[in-house]
Amino acid sequence: MWAHFSGVRRIAAVALASSRELLRERILYVLVGFALLLIGTALLLGELSVGQERRIVLDVGLGAIRVLGIAMAIVLGVRLLEREIERRAIYILLTKPVRRWEVLLGKLIGGALLLFASVAAMTGGLLLTLAAAGRPWREELPLLLPVVFLFWLQSLMAMAIALLFSTFSTSTLSTLSALGLVLIGHASREFLQWAEVVRSPLLALLCRAFYYALPNMQNLNFTAAAVHGREITLSIIGMASAYVVLYLVVVLILAAIAFHGREFR
């Protein structure tokens, strides 16, 4: 039996159970519902600004998907693990023949699937709003899909960071820390610019270290391109995806190290 059993199956089992659990979280529906409400509101705003309906709907709609997608990722990312630790349900899981890093990876995959479904639902809401505004939504698809795909990657980074913090911290601290890191990540380029202007080499090194350590959220935000009808090339999507995969690998390795050493008193 064991010869045919691989870690992939165990990771898939954890992923399935995690996405099932998260699917029953009320907060998920509250956030998706709120996002859809915001996207719907864009229709009203669009009507108020003659000739700008498309721009307003896309601006507000994509903004809602991005912000609420990240919020969802942080809240659910912390819940993936920390609640199980706080309620001591993790004791039973860790006595099963599953490695700790497999638990982390499985949980992240389960969360990623759910985030994907949520982003897809919110995108559906945006397309419906465009249709209601009388826009040819099919024509917008080639522009919108790459943008929301990159939003999903952004939220995955936020979820992985939340998961990392929850391997060694409480749920409140993990949420606040992940939120802080993601917010600073939206201004990570500033650190690179500071590195150019500061005189102290040590400070410059520190600024560069921050730039590489922080999640570069700006590189994954192409709202303006979509709004102005500029196409996002495959090479951009490929580069952005490669960056996210690399970042996820590093964060997961750190999380696995922290989780491996954690004692459950």
Binding site: M1, W2, H4, F5, R9, R10, A12, A13, V14, L16, A17, R20, E21, R24, E25, E84, R87, R88, A89, Y91, I92, K96, P97, V98
Partner: peptide, 24 residues
């Protein structure tokens, strides 16, 4: 464990099926 805390969103059948998968 002393107080068996279990993932409360799952049903007993789902939980056991999940653990069964971990045992291959």
């Amino acid at each position: 464990p002393e107080h068996p805390y279990l993932p409360e969103a799952l049903t007993a059948r789902e939980l056991l099926d999940y653990f069964g998968r971990l045992f291959g």
